[in-house]
Deep mutational scan, measured.
Amino acid sequence: MQIFVKTLTGKTITLEVEPSDTIENVKAKIQDKEGIPPDQQRLIFNGKQLEDGRTLSDYNIQKDSTLHLVLR
């Protein structure tokens, strides 16, 4: 499925993911596309910070959902 990740600069990254993917996996995909190390990434969905060990389906993230990427 496709999800979107919006950065603070207003750029939107499109990712191909599975609901069973962990947040860690998603961060690795963002690193592949953008070169941002996962330990600098914080992903936010519906105002909640997403934890590495959880999956997209844990957070009820579905296709065409938009996550927000904050760098630390």
Rank of each mutant, 00 (worst) to 15 (best):
N25K: 14
I61V: 13
Q62E: 11
D58A: 05
G10W: 02
T12K: 06
L8I: 04
Q62V: 12
M1W: 11
S57E: 10
E24P: 15
P38R: 09
L56P: 01
N60R: 09
T7F: 09
E34T: 02
Q31I: 07
S65K: 02
T55E: 13
H68S: 04
Q2H: 12
D32H: 08
A28P: 03
L15D: 00
P19R: 06
D32A: 14
Q40E: 15
I3T: 01
I61T: 02
L50N: 00
Y59S: 04
K27M: 10
F45D: 03
V5E: 00
D39F: 12
I44T: 08
Y59N: 06
I36N: 07
I61A: 02
L43R: 00
G35Y: 03
G53I: 07
L8P: 10
H68P: 01
I23A: 06
R42D: 12
G47K: 09
L43H: 01
Q31S: 08
T22Y: 11
I61S: 01
T9G: 07
V26W: 01
D21F: 06
K33Q: 11
G35T: 11
K63A: 08
F45A: 03
N25L: 11
Q2K: 05
E51L: 05
E34L: 06
K48G: 08
I13L: 09
Q62W: 09
Q62G: 13
F4K: 10
T66W: 03
K29V: 14
Q62R: 04
R72F: 02
F45S: 07
I30F: 06
T55W: 10
K6R: 14
L56Q: 00
I30A: 03
R42T: 06
A28M: 09
H68E: 03
V70R: 02
T66F: 04
S65H: 10
I36E: 05
D32E: 12
H68W: 02
E34H: 04
L15A: 02
L15F: 12
I61H: 00
L67Y: 01
Q40K: 11
I23K: 01
E51S: 05
S20G: 04
T22A: 12
D58Q: 07
K33M: 11
K6L: 12
D58I: 05
E51H: 15
G53H: 05
Q49K: 05
E34W: 04
I13N: 03
V17A: 14
P38S: 14
K33V: 11
L67M: 08
Q41G: 06
K11Q: 08
I23M: 02
P38F: 15
I61G: 00
K27L: 07
P19E: 08
I36V: 12
I23R: 01
K33G: 08
N46H: 15
S65V: 07
L69N: 01
N25E: 11
I23E: 01
I30V: 12
V26K: 00
R72A: 14
T7M: 15
D21S: 10
Q41F: 06
E16H: 15
Q41D: 01
R72W: 10
E34F: 05
D39Y: 15
P38I: 03
F4T: 13
E51V: 07
N25G: 09
N25S: 10
T22G: 12
Q2P: 15
D58N: 06
M1I: 07
L15M: 11
T66Y: 05
T12R: 03
V17N: 13
V26A: 07
K6E: 09
A28E: 06
L15P: 00
Q62L: 11
K33A: 14
L67H: 01
D21R: 03
D64W: 04
Y59D: 02
K11I: 10
S20I: 14
D21L: 08
T14N: 10
